[in-house]
Design a protein around this nucleic acid. Sequence first.
DNA 1: ATGCTATTTGAATAATATTCAATATTTAAT
DNA 2: ATTAAATATTGAATATTATTCAAATAGCAT
Lengths: 149, 149
Amino acid sequence: MKDTRSDLVRLIKSGYCAPRIAGIAKRLRQPATTIHYNIKQMEREKVIRTYKAVFDYKKIDEGFCTYVLISLAPEEYADPERIAKELAKFEEVESVDVITGGWEIIVKIRTENIEAYYGFMRTVLTRRGIAKTTSLNSMRQLKSEFVEF
Amino acid sequence: MKDTRSDLVRLIKSGYCAPRIAGIAKRLRQPATTIHYNIKQMEREKVIRTYKAVFDYKKIDEGFCTYVLISLAPEEYADPERIAKELAKFEEVESVDVITGGWEIIVKIRTENIEAYYGFMRTVLTRRGIAKTTSLNSMRQLKSEFVEF
DNA sequence: ATGCTATTTGAATAATATTCAATATTTAAT
DNA sequence: ATTAAATATTGAATATTATTCAAATAGCAT
């Protein structure tokens, strides 16, 4: 058996999907061409960024979810985006925001389990510029990516 | 002009999309029927929960993004999910998690602006059971829903 | 090796997206 | 209010894509 599944997951995690125009048209009781026109317009204007799949993350070995609050070292205050951009590159990272409040960055991370998270933490969240981290572990996810569980 | 757009946004925000099998097949250099078989399997097994659109949220009047750390009142400790579930119902809420650490719940909220957020905060985040909230405003989003900006 | 089950695949069909041209609606200027 | 220009809606025709089906192949347990 080929391992098609992980390739598939990787692709549809952030793209390779499309709107179901016929279904939308039926639901909104409008001609498919009208729906098509409006959606293409939103795509052209970049209102829609992409289409993607949402997973049951436990079933794709990303069941362990953590929010990490990051305090930067003073020398990074001038440009918190530098580190934020670096963090965004990792596939384990679902989201990265530069924030106000007691911390500079919040990152949402999905790994298989606590060991994998510990590994990520040690290799990534200990780099120069990151002064301190606070991990908030998700024990239960009621909603994610606007999708209720 | 009909207001097709907001209907459209509402629908594709959490569904009414599908994988582009032909595109995936070409990319992975595999027959479309093989891709189709594997994807249908993942759908049956509920590995894939749904397909959805990702937006440039500023362009759909959801540009103001906040993470809220919630401390529950002691009488809610036994069942933090009760309140978490309630919060998940609001369309402004992107995600809700019950967490470990200094707070019980973390919520990600998207509103048009700070006034709309204030309104949400006053009506929703002040209900019985919620003892204290800490708002972390997103000043810049580098990644969201696994999609880099 | 044998049989059994799960997966892969190509050919045929069904369904859907897209294009195009015509019509209707909105917008802005006078 | 009238007009002209730009934008949006729509049905019919076409192109593309998903899906079904049957056959072939590969994996697995005994």
